[in-house]
Nucleic acid binder design. Structure first.
Length: 156
DNA sequence: GCCAACGTTGGC
DNA sequence: GCCAACGTTGGC
């Protein structure tokens, strides 16, 4: 199966790329949107590439890349009552929400800002620019390459 | 801090 | 099943 590419958004005060580096591997839990859930459950598989995007006032930029180390599996925080992501509709025997694991690969030399991305014709159809609110979204190989290049990833 | 976009909920 | 109300995200 061909490797696919994704963009994951995170508010850096909630979870930043630096925290991912420190944690080595992160469970991408807490996604509570059905479209994003479907990607996590059905499409995102081990080995896929992830652009890590910081949303919010301080950053608004892709800051690095990550790799999926575990394909979709049930998000156990949904049945963890003290968790802020608790959702009584999800049960271990019939999970509603899903997550994947990711690992940091390389921090960008240069964060690629939202303002910068808006100026690149190759990126004009990016979901990030068209429907800003989806927190897990597919990225085309062309978009992936353009952003990695701008970010100064060593492979380019 | 404001507000547009948009996903979700719930009354009918 | 429709749609108004509501809540959240996230850029500005």
């Amino acid at each position: 199966m061909a490797k696919r590419y994704w963009l994951f958004k995170s508010e850096p005060s909630a979870y930043s790329y630096d925290m991912l580096i420190a944690d080595k591997v992160a469970e991408w839990d807490g996604v509570r949107n059905f479209q994003a859930r479907n990607f996590l459950r059905d499409d995102i598989t081990e080995g896929d590439g992830v652009l890590f995007y910081h949303s919010g006032r301080e950053s608004m930029a892709v800051v690095g890349i990550a790799i999926v180390t575990r394909s979709g599996y049930p998000d156990h925080t949904a049945w963890d009552i003290p968790s802020e992501h608790f959702d009584p509709r999800s049960k271990p025997e019939n999970p509603l929400w899903f997550m994947v694991d990711i690992q940091a690969v390389e921090q960008f030399m240069q964060p690629v800002t939202l303002a910068e991305m808006k100026k690149i014709p190759t990126l004009e159809n990016m979901i990030l620019l068209r429907r800003g609110r989806l927190s897990v979204q597919p990225v085309s190989p062309e978009e992936w390459n353009a952003i990695c290049k701008l970010g100064g990833v060593s492979a380019f």
